[in-house]
Lab assay of single mutants.
Amino acid sequence: HMTFVALYDYVASGETDLSFKKGERLQIVNNTEGDWWLAHSLTTGRTGYIPSNYVAPSD
């Protein structure tokens, strides 16, 4: 899985979304859904959809 880092805080707007904090590391499970990607937080262990423009590839 690709690892990304959150650029901003995001508060989930629905049950399927994943809240995260700036700097949180996320594994992308599925990024074929356009602007919303299914991600797994390496910080909280939770999985949900995130806005793709809130994250950047982590080196």
Score class of each variant (00 low, 15 high):
residue 58 S to L: 15
residue 41 S to W: 00
residue 50 I to E: 00
residue 51 P to Q: 06
residue 20 F to L: 08
residue 7 L to Y: 03
residue 24 E to P: 00
residue 36 W to T: 07
residue 36 W to A: 05
residue 47 T to P: 01
residue 53 N to S: 15
residue 21 K to L: 12
residue 18 L to E: 02
residue 53 N to Y: 11
residue 43 T to F: 07
residue 46 R to C: 06
residue 29 V to Y: 12
residue 21 K to Q: 09
residue 43 T to K: 08
residue 40 H to G: 03
residue 55 V to M: 07
residue 3 T to K: 05
residue 4 F to P: 00
residue 31 N to H: 11
residue 38 L to P: 02
residue 58 S to G: 10
residue 44 T to P: 01
residue 52 S to V: 08
residue 27 Q to N: 09
residue 10 Y to G: 01
residue 17 D to A: 09
residue 13 S to F: 11
residue 51 P to I: 03
residue 18 L to N: 02
residue 45 G to Y: 06
residue 41 S to N: 09
residue 3 T to S: 09
residue 29 V to P: 04
residue 26 L to Y: 01
residue 39 A to I: 04
residue 10 Y to S: 01
residue 5 V to P: 01
residue 49 Y to Q: 05
residue 25 R to L: 12
residue 17 D to L: 09
residue 2 M to V: 13
residue 30 N to F: 08
residue 33 E to W: 10
residue 30 N to M: 12
residue 17 D to T: 09
residue 8 Y to Q: 10
residue 54 Y to C: 06
residue 22 K to M: 08
residue 45 G to T: 03
residue 4 F to N: 01
residue 3 T to C: 07
residue 22 K to A: 12
residue 34 G to E: 13
residue 21 K to M: 12
residue 56 A to L: 10
residue 18 L to M: 15
residue 58 S to E: 15
residue 11 V to E: 13
residue 22 K to Y: 05
residue 8 Y to P: 00
residue 59 D to K: 04
residue 51 P to K: 06
residue 21 K to S: 12
residue 18 L to W: 03
residue 4 F to T: 04
residue 48 G to K: 01
residue 25 R to Q: 15
residue 28 I to L: 07
residue 47 T to V: 12
residue 24 E to F: 01
residue 37 W to S: 03
residue 22 K to R: 11
residue 2 M to T: 13
residue 45 G to L: 06
residue 51 P to N: 07
residue 18 L to P: 05
residue 45 G to Q: 06
residue 10 Y to H: 06
residue 44 T to G: 04
residue 3 T to G: 06
residue 31 N to W: 14
residue 47 T to C: 08
residue 1 H to C: 08
residue 33 E to P: 09
residue 21 K to D: 07
residue 14 G to F: 09
residue 56 A to N: 07
residue 9 D to C: 04
residue 57 P to V: 11
residue 28 I to K: 06
residue 26 L to N: 00
residue 23 G to V: 00
residue 11 V to W: 12
residue 31 N to M: 14
residue 10 Y to A: 01
residue 8 Y to V: 07
residue 6 A to R: 00
residue 46 R to W: 09
residue 40 H to A: 10
residue 14 G to T: 12
residue 39 A to D: 00
residue 24 E to H: 04
residue 5 V to D: 04
residue 10 Y to N: 03
residue 41 S to A: 04
residue 24 E to A: 01
residue 32 T to S: 13
residue 33 E to H: 13
residue 34 G to I: 10
residue 20 F to R: 00
residue 44 T to C: 02
residue 4 F to M: 13
residue 34 G to L: 11
residue 11 V to P: 05
residue 14 G to P: 03
residue 1 H to P: 15
residue 12 A to M: 04
residue 14 G to W: 09
residue 27 Q to E: 14
residue 47 T to Q: 09
residue 42 L to F: 08
residue 53 N to C: 08
residue 45 G to H: 11
residue 39 A to G: 05
residue 32 T to Y: 09
residue 45 G to R: 05
residue 28 I to Y: 02
residue 19 S to P: 06
residue 34 G to V: 10
residue 37 W to Y: 06
residue 14 G to R: 15
residue 43 T to A: 11
residue 57 P to W: 10
residue 38 L to S: 02
residue 26 L to G: 00
residue 30 N to W: 09
residue 57 P to L: 14
residue 58 S to Q: 12
residue 16 T to K: 15
residue 19 S to R: 03
residue 29 V to F: 10
residue 3 T to L: 15
residue 28 I to G: 03
residue 58 S to C: 07
residue 26 L to F: 15
residue 14 G to K: 14
residue 9 D to Q: 03
residue 6 A to N: 01
residue 37 W to G: 00
residue 47 T to A: 07
residue 13 S to T: 15
residue 45 G to K: 06
residue 33 E to G: 14
residue 48 G to L: 02
residue 55 V to K: 02
residue 45 G to F: 07
residue 9 D to T: 07
residue 51 P to H: 06
residue 52 S to H: 08
residue 56 A to G: 11
residue 57 P to F: 09
residue 54 Y to H: 10
residue 35 D to C: 07
residue 10 Y to F: 08
residue 20 F to H: 01
residue 9 D to F: 02
residue 51 P to A: 03
residue 16 T to I: 09
residue 37 W to C: 04
residue 39 A to N: 00
residue 37 W to D: 01
residue 25 R to N: 09
residue 13 S to N: 13
residue 50 I to D: 01
residue 29 V to E: 08
residue 25 R to K: 14
residue 57 P to D: 07
residue 59 D to M: 12
residue 4 F to S: 03
residue 5 V to G: 01
residue 34 G to T: 10
residue 42 L to Y: 09
residue 6 A to M: 06
residue 35 D to F: 14
residue 11 V to S: 10
residue 8 Y to M: 11
residue 32 T to D: 13
residue 24 E to T: 02
residue 10 Y to P: 00
residue 47 T to E: 09
residue 20 F to W: 01
residue 51 P to F: 04
residue 17 D to R: 12
residue 18 L to S: 03
residue 42 L to K: 05
residue 39 A to H: 00
residue 37 W to Q: 04
residue 3 T to R: 05
residue 25 R to H: 11
residue 13 S to I: 13
residue 53 N to W: 12
residue 6 A to V: 10
residue 28 I to A: 08
residue 55 V to T: 04
residue 6 A to W: 00
residue 50 I to A: 02
residue 9 D to V: 02
residue 14 G to Q: 13
residue 8 Y to K: 10
residue 29 V to L: 15
residue 40 H to F: 14
residue 35 D to Q: 14
residue 25 R to S: 11
residue 47 T to G: 06
residue 41 S to K: 02
residue 7 L to C: 06
residue 25 R to I: 14
residue 5 V to M: 07
residue 6 A to E: 00
residue 21 K to R: 10
residue 59 D to F: 12
residue 58 S to N: 10
residue 1 H to E: 12
residue 16 T to M: 15
residue 27 Q to L: 15
residue 58 S to R: 04
residue 54 Y to G: 06
residue 35 D to L: 12
residue 17 D to I: 08
residue 27 Q to V: 15
residue 29 V to C: 08
residue 56 A to Y: 10
residue 42 L to V: 08
residue 26 L to Q: 00
residue 58 S to A: 15
residue 24 E to R: 00
residue 39 A to C: 06
residue 42 L to S: 06
residue 22 K to P: 02
residue 16 T to W: 15
residue 50 I to Q: 00
residue 9 D to A: 05
residue 12 A to D: 02
residue 25 R to G: 05
residue 1 H to R: 03
residue 37 W to N: 02
residue 11 V to K: 11
residue 44 T to A: 03
residue 47 T to D: 07
residue 1 H to Q: 15
residue 14 G to C: 09
residue 15 E to G: 08
residue 54 Y to L: 15
residue 20 F to A: 01
residue 10 Y to E: 00
residue 8 Y to G: 04
residue 16 T to C: 09
residue 28 I to V: 14
residue 29 V to T: 08
residue 30 N to V: 11
residue 35 D to Y: 12
residue 37 W to F: 06
residue 41 S to L: 03
residue 51 P to E: 01
residue 18 L to R: 01
residue 21 K to E: 09
residue 24 E to K: 00
residue 31 N to C: 08
residue 49 Y to G: 02
residue 1 H to M: 13
residue 24 E to I: 00
residue 46 R to N: 11
residue 5 V to R: 04
residue 43 T to G: 06
